[in-house]
Design a binder for these strands. Structure first.
Lengths: 232, 232
DNA sequence: CAGACCTATTGGCTAGGCCACTAGTCCAGA
DNA sequence: TCTGGACTAGTGGCCTAGCCAATAGGTCTG
């Protein structure tokens, strides 16, 4: 592993683990490995590539972060679907044009999130939720539409559900949701109704009643969607 | 290094480097470091965090791959995107792929999907669903576990919901499900029971009763998840 | 003052080792 | 027969110790 030409190469700075990772992927491609197939053991990769095991390990970390492989203690490194989260997200956006779809997805996620929040919320979570409601109310009192507080509220509820996966999925569709949310709140008289609906959700979460929370959230989403659909 | 949610357990296996990366980014945020600032030397990080330098190096590789730091030989590791600090934590957390989270998400999506399928299914959809049940039953009669039919069934239900967004999200989830091998674990040695549960869902969809369908699906997911957790 | 030359500091990588986990095998007991 | 436990081989996880290479910043010299 010696640099062939020490003379002129200012930017050739590649880490060894990058080359190793590249070679591994090349090997995978050449041998036509697919999802679920197991890579060679670290020790063998190390000897075959003429590097130390630590470097191979770094390469696997890189591949793992990228999402190409999953390294399993005591078992080995297996290939996972090469279509990373980025591609999924893109596909998501491409398919997400229809508003009703967005509403369906939002209902699915937020209803469950509300139920989970009711059972898992900590006191801190509750404080955050109440804080969001205060922000929303203050804004509405001042003549605003409470958009910021609305967003903050849903973020707080999501946080209180303590489920990273659901949180991630909510983020994926959050921008899409924002549009419908703004439209809804721009209807006269809506902000007050919306605030009340949020209060009902918050109360259910406070009580720790998952079914009530889910029902309240479902009602809220349906209410908001009404307007969006009418205007569609 | 405390898990925020103790009650639920086992799959929390995180690599040390992930924790190290999280702590580094946390430290960055606490000290208000921004783009261009230099991190502590690897050796010092190692001693401060009580891990080996190799592990710190792995963490830096991960952060480098994500794109938040650039490691410069002889100089140090500098932040390239301080704004990404929050995202990193979340990405790493998401990478932990905890089983309970996946179950939560699956429940959220499939319940809604079942309800939608009940209201939107066409006759063709229904035929596909019944076909999947037939496949499952035949397989079980032949001594199999009906895995293929099971997959087919859920795909048919998802199809019947006619929501491309939810479908995409389910695809995302199913990848995770496969990775954590829930599928294999979730075969409760009693394929007949599983078949019966599927029948109940199909019947509710046939009747066009969204609430019943949702309830049946929820029960099914809960049943499957129970087994997975118990057997772990 | 400008340039060459040290030198401390830092990352890059290796070597070797021990431990923990996984899966398969085999054997004893119900 | 079948279940469950012990054993074993193979694997990744992480550590210790060390040397090499690059960088930055000082100091020395002309």
């Amino acid at each position: 592993m010696s640099d062939p030409r020490p003379g002129l190469k200012p930017l050739a700075r590649t880490r060894l683990y990058e080359q190793v990772a590249q070679q591994i992927m090349e090997w995978v491609r050449e041998n036509g490995l697919t999802t679920g197939d197991r890579l060679l053991p670290e020790r063998e990769l190390a000897t075959r590539l003429g590097v130390s095991r630590a470097t191979v390990s770094q390469a696997l970390v890189a591949l793992e972060v990228i999402g190409v492989v999953a390294v399993r203690h005591g078992d080995g490194a297996v290939l996972t679907d090469a279509s990373g989260a980025a591609k999924v997200l893109e596909a998501l956006r491409a398919h997400a044009k229809r508003l009703p779809d967005i509403i369906d997805a939002r209902d699915a996620l937020e209803t469950k999130i509300a139920a989970l929040a009711a059972t898992r919320r900590t006191d801190d979570d509750l404080a955050a939720i109440d804080g969001a409601l205060d922000v929303m109310e203050a804004d509405i009192d001042a003549g605003g539409r409470g958009v910021a507080g609305d967003e903050q509220f849903h973020a707080a509820i999501t946080e209180a559900a303590h489920s990273s996966l659901l949180e991630k999925m909510m983020q994926q569709i959050s921008e899409l949701i924002l549009e419908t949310r703004i439209e809804s709140l721009s209807q006269p008289g809506r902000p007050r109704d919306s605030l009340a609906a949020h209060r009902r959700i918050a109360d259910a979460v406070r009580l720790g009643d998952p079914e009530l929370a889910a029902a309240a959230m479902h009602h809220h989403v349906a209410q908001v969607s009404d307007v969006a659909i009418l205007r569609d």
